[in-house]
Design a protein around this nucleic acid. Structure first.
Lengths: 146, 146
DNA sequence: TATTGTTATACTCTATAACTATA
DNA sequence: TATAGTTATAGAGTATAACAATA
């Protein structure tokens, strides 16, 4: 059986479709927490310590105005605090609150549930290989800093 | 080294991010043709023969109104024709024109270029395994009909 | 009454550009 | 002048719902 000459047989197409689906399902799981997928990468980064807003923007891969929006929403949930940097008063240092830390823990748990559903059709060894390959590509293309 | 407890180490997150990137790059490549990614799955389906609009909608996974929009744009490019079904005059049978066939050929070629760039960081065997795994998941979840 | 396709409308996500306050 | 953050606005992309023609 030769490789099928079809769009559905390209990595890019499958990645796009599956990514969209993974995101949608994740959004459904997050909804009860009052969160959407875009909040999660920010919570993740902040769990490593405070960040300035432009730093978050660059790390997450969105523009400054989007970060303002995301942080407004996280602040509304008492998940983060904006603290004016005393050394450079233009800056806000964003830090996680205890509520934020708990939310982050939950987003991680939901992400793992999401993976279980997504990977239920393939065996664990293949799933592990997939995770490794995706991680490799993401690192190589600078998508994640690792 | 234990599995890292981080969002960046989940399949769902990586799939979402990489899918978004793959789509964006593909969109850049398609732009000179006057096409966007959403047109491609429709061209692909039509290359197998005429379809009614609701059939396309279901197969591609979008709503009827979106299909109308996509077909309007493809018709504008002379890539498709709407032919009233004589057996059931509510229906339009959508068929590819010679121009559409040529465009479809080009979208496929660009998709392969896109894959090459995306997969340049990993070796061919790993890339083949990735394609197979993604295809398996997509088929199992009913994302593609195969 | 139900179905095919169409239109009008609204919502989400993101980007760009103009603005402020600091540096 | 340049930078951090904010606001206003606009552009994709999609969905929902009301509608016309046909079954």
């Amino acid at each position: 059986m030769a490789a099928e000459e079809s769009l559905t047989n390209t990595v890019g197409f499958l990645l796009g479709k599956l990514g969209q689906r993974a995101n949608g399902r994740y959004a459904d799981r997050l909804a009860p927490l009052g969160l959407r997928p875009r909040h999660c990468a920010v919570l993740e980064l902040l769990s490593g310590g405070p960040h300035a807003q432009l730093g978050l923007a660059k790390a997450v891969g969105v523009t400054a105005s989007v970060v303002v929006d995301i942080l407004d929403e996280l602040e509304e949930l008492d998940a983060v605090r904006r603290v004016r940097d005393t050394a450079d008063r233009r800056r806000q240092l964003i830090e996680l609150t205890p509520t934020g830390r708990e939310l982050r823990r939950q987003t991680l748990s939901l992400a793992r549930q999401n993976d279980q559903e997504l990977l239920s059709a393939i065996d664990p060894a293949e799933a592990a290989a997939l995770l490794q390959t995706l991680g490799r590509i993401a690192t190589a293309t600078g998508l994640i800093t690792k």
